[in-house]
Design a protein around this nucleic acid. Sequence first.
DNA 1: TCAGAAGATTAGTCTAGACTAACCTCGAAC
DNA 2: GTTCGAGGTTAGTCTAGACTAATCTTCTGA
Lengths: 227, 227
Amino acid sequence: MGVVPALTRSRQDYLKALYALSTAGGTITTSRLARRLGVSAPSVTHMLGLLAGERLVIHSLGAGARLSAEGRRRALEIVRRHRILETFLVRVLGLDWSEVHDDAEVLEHHISDRVLEAIDRLVGHPAEDPHGHLIPDRHGRVRPRALRPLAALPRGASATVREIRDADQHRMARWKEIGLVPGAVVRVREVRAADGVFELEIAGRPLVIGREGLEGVLVDARRGARA
Amino acid sequence: MGVVPALTRSRQDYLKALYALSTAGGTITTSRLARRLGVSAPSVTHMLGLLAGERLVIHSLGAGARLSAEGRRRALEIVRRHRILETFLVRVLGLDWSEVHDDAEVLEHHISDRVLEAIDRLVGHPAEDPHGHLIPDRHGRVRPRALRPLAALPRGASATVREIRDADQHRMARWKEIGLVPGAVVRVREVRAADGVFELEIAGRPLVIGREGLEGVLVDARRGARA
DNA sequence: TCAGAAGATTAGTCTAGACTAACCTCGAAC
DNA sequence: GTTCGAGGTTAGTCTAGACTAATCTTCTGA
């Protein structure tokens, strides 16, 4: 088994990005990683080489990069930290849903296990963070969950919002304002194919919004009831 | 006025060490700083040069180093963060008094102002941390307070413990165990000059302890009442 | 089939902040 | 009055992780 050495902040960020891109699908290219991490492509090539040397990443020409089992476990540890911290920032400190991401992003790298577990206890071992993301357990396990984009619902369907993918603060603040939050019930009154505009009903209130304004909002996958 | 640039963690640590040594008295030499920070003397020389260039430190040959007004303000900002965090870790997360130092030491550098103020609000804007240290206000002001070492009390005197200087975990745990915590009332029953041993009464219970076992325990400065 | 673009990699540079080795300076002791 | 030792400083090296410039590869479109 052996003791696993601590990872630097930068390495943690690479693993987390690798994990996020793997759930998003498609091959993980150097340039995609570079874009997501805000670093240059050569920096990514370099770091992937190091992480591959540490058996955390498998990097093959052509097939791009992917996490090894151990790399994935490490990535999920960080995701767990992030989501517990976001929950804490919202529920205990009363910060806004839409503005806690950046703080959690920094703190996830610097909180000790002891403090993390104390925070987890304080917020009651939540299963989901405020955006509806599942929180991996202590061993880096997440039970998979089938969700689909709100924008994929047909006319007349209704569903419950389950998860809000991280986006810019602006958009998240807007979602919150219009009630597009985990748990909200949504019904699709009309889909205007011509301009991609949705006429929705959120918790009973009407809303007209463009398809691109709904990107990142996921609802449960069960077939929506007809109106 | 101008915007003050953020300081790196390392610079923050130097300022804090400079502040701590300045309250401890004596001239602040390169070697004292090196010892306290756990770095080599040349590293200190180098960093003092940089900090002096940024007008945060005044470094003169012979007289050692000291903080400029701005440097002191910055140092107190970090001290504030540290003490608010310790209070939070103890009062909200329920961690032990004697084991929160290291976590606060790391977090003080990484918490945003927003989160810090939210935490401060949560713990009710305390004036002191769990060790009895005064918490500087938002502008880096501390009202000075006259305290004296418990070990300086004469026979028969009694006083209230006000502050416990940071020490190793072991010693702090012991102090806690024997009730030597801020607020405790102590009476000196006997001072055995020969071997420097104190016979105390802490909250009514007797305790025999060597002078060096009391180092760092401060009590209020008013003349102790005779038994 | 070949030119150009897009993407990946190599090579070399930079920064912060550490380090060691070597040297300087001064007070104290012989 | 020289010598020694304790600082302190200078000079040069190292590390992680970024960067740019240049090169290599591969795919695509004409």
